[in-house]
Design a protein around this nucleic acid. Sequence first.
DNA 1: CTGTGTGAAGGAGTTCACAGCG
DNA 2: CGCTGTGAACTCCTTCACACAG
Lengths: 221, 221
Amino acid sequence: MTYRNVSKFVIKRLPVYLRKLDNLISYDVEVVSSQKLSEETGFTAEQIRKDLACFGAFGTRGSGYNVEYLRDKILKIIGLHKQTRVIVVGVGNLGKAFSRYNFINNPYVKIVGLFDSDTEVVGEKIFYLKIEHISEMKKVLVEENVKVAILAVPAKEAQKMADQLVADGITAIFNFAPIKLKLPPEVYIHNVDLTLELQSLIYFSSTKDNLVDLEDAFGNF
Amino acid sequence: MTYRNVSKFVIKRLPVYLRKLDNLISYDVEVVSSQKLSEETGFTAEQIRKDLACFGAFGTRGSGYNVEYLRDKILKIIGLHKQTRVIVVGVGNLGKAFSRYNFINNPYVKIVGLFDSDTEVVGEKIFYLKIEHISEMKKVLVEENVKVAILAVPAKEAQKMADQLVADGITAIFNFAPIKLKLPPEVYIHNVDLTLELQSLIYFSSTKDNLVDLEDAFGNF
DNA sequence: CTGTGTGAAGGAGTTCACAGCG
DNA sequence: CGCTGTGAACTCCTTCACACAG
């Protein structure tokens, strides 16, 4: 039995479960049902059970899931059981905000390097970590065996920088730059494009059944 | 003919087309085929044609789509044909970064208010716009008839603030706070949770067919 | 002859319903 | 009896294949 081909949709829900489980642990809750998790997360109980079933049978029929056991299982599934090391490339507004945010909110992912090409920001600190020049990047990537990079450089530098990251051993990129990176297929890219996301939100802002909205846009129909 | 029930997946792709069309316009390209758009965006040509077909027939058989005409159509479909006014609530790291980013990158969405409860940041400027105290919010919402809010306050304040926004007429929320907002179903919520997104990225960082990764995680299988 | 528009087929994700175990 | 685990049904999105218009 192998776990190839687990849907991306499933993987995206796992961290949601993880967060809820961590929360339950902090309240000393020991057992949780898929029904309870459903109420907390908004996903259906069946879906939660199906998601977990992709990776094995972790529950106890009649009672539910052991919270701590399930949390540890999910950590291992995602690969967060040993703290993951990442670097941030491009420490402008967005890179800075992301870094500060991650330091505070994400115990499972550790930023081990902040890099920028702008000598203006090099030397600045974010919490305990000093921003270094891009030229120092490869050294850190190799020493710390980093596989994940957060790319928050301007659009026109993004492709070049991504190529360099891949050449230096990066296998997954969290990309804030508003361009479609062209990289080997084995590199996983996750794009966060705030402009696009906000624009599509606008569509839904007038009314949820968009009848009125669209009739207005197409007087000709 | 009405346009109810256009899939969210379609709507999310429209801004991608929009950006490419704007780009083509800046290069004085007048006509574009779905094939060309496919190469540029990474979506299949059939999908692009199907997406556009949800809203009418905009192309010319044999040649393609008139770039400017299609751009204007998409603007109207999304509702961006008249600049949309939004406010930003919570101007910490993330709110600040988002605002600066939007000022520069998003010509179609105008930020008309920046609000925070922290008197420390009130008075600061982001580009030409001054950060105001939350107490001023309602006035701006009404005067400018704002329907969309970007919520970037700490998690524990988010629900209370969201309730207030909805009470003041907001119909869509772009939510950066890492909680599930409980709001009336007619309010559209788009969550951007960087911690969750980064965590799920980790899963894909070891290898794209996650066989090895998972066998390692479940030695017992 | 080229490229759009679209019904039909295929594939993927979700929900349903219930068997089965504690 | 309660809650998990899961095949089957269902829904929705994508891809295919081709008719049709310029």
